[in-house]
Write a protein that binds this DNA or RNA. Sequence first.
DNA 1: TCTGGGGTCCTAGGACCC
DNA 2: TCTGGGGTCCTAGGACCC
Length: 425
Amino acid sequence: MSKVILQIDGNNFYASCEQLVDPSIKGKGLVVLSNNDGCIIARNSEARKMGIPMGQPYFKLKNKLNQLNINVRSSNYELYGDISSRLMQLLRINCEELEIYSIDEAFGTIKRPKEKCLYQWGKNLRALVYQNIGIPISIGIGETKVLSKISNHLAKKTQNNSGIFDIGVIENKDPYLNFIKVDKVWGIGKRMSTWLKSKGITNARELRDMSSNQIKEKYGVVGIRIQNELKGNLCIPVKETSLDRKEICVSRSFSYPIDNLEELNQAIIKYVLIASSKLRKHNQLSSAITVFTNTNIHSKDFFKSEVTGKINVPTSDSRVMIKISLELTQKIFKPYRRLTKAGVILHKLQSNQYKQKLLFEQQFIKEALHQERLNHVIDQINNSNGRDTINWGSSMIEKEWSPRRKKTSMIKTTHIESIPTIYAK
DNA sequence: TCTGGGGTCCTAGGACCC
DNA sequence: TCTGGGGTCCTAGGACCC
């Protein structure tokens, strides 16, 4: 029995979720837009067949989408997050280890019984997920993460595998690796693939067989690991997902450019509140904050500015973080710039289990505990009644610059009042 | 007119130490 | 003109991912 790596993902995940809650759009073209209705970030297979590309700005394709009668949805992360956690729960039961890699993707491990192909096992899991969650998945199986990724790709690309591919039982992988373009290999991005192509390396098989010295010289351990994984040597282990994040980032584009400090302050406060409540949800504390802002990245005089500040005593207290962030915001702000985006990042996160004891006067401790309880109560109210039900006064100002989301599916799986009504005939 | 958001990991180089 | 050698730790930024 040998351990194999699984790579499992939801097919066209966001689009599948939208179709799940609105079956009337099944079989028709569908695209999902990014925040601010900016870009196309997901499309179903019908839209793909009609030639709708990924990542393109919505305004450029609006007419085409209309002509082709393709449905459009703003992204509804609350819905996708809920479907995702149901999916991951089910996968966790069916794998030995599970690493949740992103909202729609996980790596897992299971034991392979004596060189046996796991096709039937995968087929059963796929059916189970479809029956219980209602979305289609693809399963790639291989000796390493990089190979299981390639397997998953093959599962999607080849017709007769019906969403499952097991490259682990294939002795001569060359024909399959020849088929995978080098820039499709997991870990090879724009820069590396440009360099590889200049060296005459165009597919995964050639990357596997090229001189490792050459890779090492240019890309160090990162490059070598990818090559080794292609050879079947496990270098990037599956690590069971801990919920301890290393950073928390909250950023948004504005619906229109802003150029004054007040509006920037309001935005930053709002993002700090979201970030700090995430932090508390994970029982973590932060000891450094970055605030940043920038103008349109596509404009000629692109401007960006960021600054990081330390927090002396690690905290998850909204009030403390707002105070520090506003000082930082002063520093990043420059007048007469048309700012289109801003955000905050919390760094150096630690578990609040080891919270530094505040060895100061009784009064100080009392105040801190008080504040902790207040934050907790605010979180509870917002969690059960929706974000922004109750919040700090400074964040309640009317925000015209808030991102646009005009086409959100109203149905959610996390609010009882949004559950659709079904009438029996 | 309009071009997303949230992460991880690695490395080079600076600050500081003896 | 010449200006040690070796560590560690931290940070900023690059590259990549979905």
